[in-house]
């Protein structure tokens, strides 16, 4: 009660009607810059997709190797996962961009944009970011799949073997279909983490959504709140939509009557 007497000045300053119409000074600035931000949005979306796909393609086999593999291959996969999960993503990205690119035959470096004739485009921050985010996601997706594979009761595998199916057939027809279903909630989580962490590619100069908002903010420092509120909303909508879609996927494939 006492607090409400002195309402915070920041709130007084917001003209809600103007805001809704996107028209007060700094909001109008955001509106003018929509095409510029939209290109950042596209980069963010693409980077999320390439990273998640790379993470799935590498992470899925990694998880399977952790469960079913043995020997040096399993140790390698396990070790790589531990390392990737232990390093901050910004460090991984900087490493991918500045350290990892090795000289390739033909005078180019890894992550360089392919030369067209004699024209060189330099190093691709997008490629480096895809590899960095993708590998780290692989390390986490591997854990999701590992847990899901292990959660399918060993008895079902024995039952599959007991009718004459091979181990591989048992994995493929009995364990995998159940493990994939059980991976969906974990995968949902991972998807949103990758989506949000694309903003860290800003550190290697990739002009995705956040980097573009940051550029605009240095042009017009009064628009900080508006710019970052706006891109937060964009991130929120993207996360919300993917989460809902994956919920739907989970419901669609849910096993009638429950899981066990």
């Amino acid at each position: 009660m006492v607090l409400s007497l002195a309402s915070p000045p920041a709130l007084d300053a917001v003209d809600w009607v103007a805001l809704a119409q996107f028209e007060s000074g700094d909001w109008a600035f955001v509106r003018e810059q929509l095409p510029y931000l939209a290109r950042g949005f596209v980069v963010t979306l693409l980077l999320t997709l390439t990273s998640i796909v790379l993470g799935f393609l590498a992470g899925f086999p990694m998880g399977a190797i952790e469960v079913y593999g043995r020997g040096p291959l399993r140790s390698f996969v396990y070790g790589a996962g531990v390392v990737l999960r232990a390093i901050p993503i910004v460090v991984i990205l900087v490493f991918m961009f500045f350290v990892a690119p090795i000289p390739l035959p033909g005078g180019q470096f890894a992550f360089d944009v392919p030369r067209v004739g004699s024209v060189s485009f330099g190093r691709s921050a997008f490629l480096a970011a895809t590899v960095g985010l993708g590998l780290r996601s692989a390390a986490y997706q591997a854990q999701i799949f590992r847990g899901a594979l292990q959660s399918v009761s060993g008895g079902q595998m024995e039952a599959a073997r007991s009718v004459g199916m091979s181990r591989l057939q048992g994995i493929r027809h009995v364990v995998l279909p159940q493990a994939l279903r059980r991976s969906i909630p974990g995968f949902q989580n991972e998807f949103t983490i990758v989506l949000k962490d694309t903003s860290i590619a800003f550190a290697i100069g990739l002009t995705e959504l956040f980097a573009r908002a940051d550029n605009l903010f240095t042009q017009r420092t009064t628009a900080t709140l508006e710019l970052f509120l706006f891109i937060s909303l964009v991130y929120f909508i993207m996360t919300f939509v993917t989460n809902r879609s994956l919920d739907y996927l989970g419901d669609y494939y849910a096993i009638p009557g429950g899981d066990r």
Binding site: S153, G155, Q156, E158, A159, R161, S162, V163, G164, D259
Partner: peptide, 18 residues
């Protein structure tokens, strides 16, 4: 696998494919 095709098994914890 050939052996198990000829010898069926029924389990205590049933182990149906869920």
């Amino acid at each position: 696998n050939d052996l198990r095709r000829r010898v069926g098994m029924v389990f205590q914890d049933i182990n149906l494919f869920a």
